[in-house]
Design a protein around this nucleic acid. Structure first.
Lengths: 334, 334
DNA sequence: TTGTACGCGTTATCAG
DNA sequence: CTGATAACGCGTACAA
């Protein structure tokens, strides 16, 4: 049933495979009106569909890119993916999506599989732990771009948030609104997680610049599940913070849970700001002031860059694209 | 650089291509320990990666399935996709994700592209408007399963929520808790959107069974953006509802926006229940009572079914899998 | 146990 | 303008 091939079309149209191939590739110029029609009709009649696999084998290109993310359920991922897909759609490219679950082993395996499948490019939200693979890819000039996180030492295009700026923005806004005991809330800090560290650095610098002291108690780091408990502890101690800066939506959730449990009043007792513009931000009471990432633009840029790398042979120096966050003023800050 | 092929390995190992092929396909049995080692080493040395495309051409199978969704940003989609990906991972399959944006044209185009790419199966959140294509696929016994929505008249595996039961569950729960003027809130009703219609039917039946009257004013249908306005109107009129049943998360958002604007007190003035378990359900005040879809199980089942269809030649009669929703009791109902 | 030769469906080259 | 014929990289009878 699906076995109708170019040869069949050729036979029916009384031409050779080559001619049919020409036709399919729109090289009509050297073709009589007549044969053209015959071929068109034969194709129609047989319901012929070209076999892309065969074409790929010959042309060494698959019109496919691979995307490896570390958490499919994360909203950032979803939105960036969406933008990537949209950009690929324009080019008639398709996207293979893989979820590494932030496991370097899986990531490596996926990269291998995707390469074996001859994808034309790769967009990776990297675990950061497979430097050797990344290096090899870059050395081979294989089109690749990192998103959200970068890998220090690997010279590849990277599409990132201006994490430093985002943290600074948070502190400045909080400080400008009269909060002086600000704590940053984050998942556990691990060195290879660049955005996390950058946000922390940005926080530290901004605090110092503002003359606000930052000590152990200014940074609250915990796994999402433990966060409410951790916060309880911190708020039981003296000099409790009067403002919290959540590094991402997940920690925000933890904070909100804590707030709900204890009944602390936001924004009067506690100012709240976070990175990532959660969908319920303006439905919550109070409405949540956030620092939004331009997820769509980031996804789009990532896709554009792979394509550019594919198109140009020459060795363009890899670039790091820093995207500016947007402050969305709402009412979780007085 | 990436041009190292089986022939190269064969040459270096001093064997023929076939032997290398044997090796790669783990047919070690007919191979001396010695040659095996030589091949292994040659592969290592050259960094050889088999070319899956060539293999696919020969074997007519690509270890790839296509998934076409109508809204990548919807949470249901994300979660189902996640489950699908996970299931594919076990089988070493990969997933090409396409977003139709609920546009039948795009859907059709994507199906064609995926078939041309020789995917081994298809999972579709169908727009419902391409019956001819669906029929052709089913007639050809091409592995396909529908998710979330089904297409009446097309005999294919479908993985769906028990929409009827979900609506009934909502009404029963509301009624049991003393609410008697219940309205259903939904996006515009269009006949080909099966879940929407099923939920409406379930609502109607359940209401009648309970002896609750349902008239024009019991169903509030509007585009997400217009919803708050529509609700305003409805609540200005006499006999305003004292409970709302949101058909999905999007309409829930509209309701919440309306509630926030008008200051209506939930659950005292207004009971609230909705299908889809939004992530902020237990963070919101009051905590939102919801009817959760088993998204993960649904995605898993969908993947399992494509695989089963692929595995068995014989014509199994297509089945419709109805998944039961789960009531998550919280406090938006008194 | 290993090698030869052919086929998978297209595209590219180069005569005709 | 059209048609042989040779790749593309791999799998596999069949032969040795």
């Amino acid at each position: 049933m699906k076995k109708v091939t170019m040869a069949d079309v050729a036979k029916l149209a009384n031409v050779s495979k080559s001619t049919v191939s020409q036709y399919l590739n729109k090289r009509y110029e050297y073709m009589s009106e007549e044969t053209r029609k015959r071929i068109a009709q034969a194709i129609e009649e047989l319901g012929y569909q070209p076999n892309v696999i065969a074409r790929s084998l010959k042309q060494k290109t698959t019109a496919t890119i691979g995307v490896i993310v570390f958490n499919m359920l994360h909203m950032l991922t979803t939105q960036v993916l969406h933008a990537i897909e949209e950009e690929c759609q324009k080019r008639e490219f398709q996207v293979i999506v893989c979820n590494s679950g932030d496991d370097p082993e899986k990531e490596r395996k996926y990269i291998d599989m995707l390469l074996a499948k001859q994808v034309d490019g790769l967009i990776v939200f990297p675990t950061g732990k497979n430097e050797d693979v990344y290096h090899r890819l870059v050395a081979e000039r294989f089109p690749i771009v990192f998103v959200d996180r970068m890998v220090p030492g690997v010279e590849a295009d990277s599409v990132l948030l201006d994490n430093f700026g985002a943290a600074e923005m948070a502190v400045d806004y909080l400080a400008a609104h009269g909060y002086d005991r600000i704590a940053i809330v984050t998942p556990p800090l691990v060195a290879h997680n660049v955005p996390r560290m950058e946000r922390l650095q940005g926080f530290r610098m901004a605090m110092e610049k503002r003359g606000l002291k930052v000590d152990d108690r200014s940074v609250i780091a915990a796994e999402a599940a433990e966060l409410p408990g951790e916060l309880q502890k911190r708020f039981a101690a003296p000099e409790r913070p009067n403002a919290l800066f959540a590094i991402n939506d997940l920690t925000l959730m933890g904070i909100l849970r804590f707030v709900k449990e204890t009944g602390i009043r936001v924004p009067d007792e506690l100012g709240l700001i976070s990175i990532d513009d959660v969908p319920f931000a303006d439905i919550y009471t109070p409405m949540l002031t956030t620092i939004a990432q331009p997820t769509f633009a980031m996804g789009k840029k990532a896709a554009e860059r792979v394509f550019e790398q594919m198109d140009q042979e020459r060795t363009r120096k890899p670039r790091v694209f820093r995207f500016s966050p947007t402050l969305v003023e709402r009412t979780s800050i007085r």
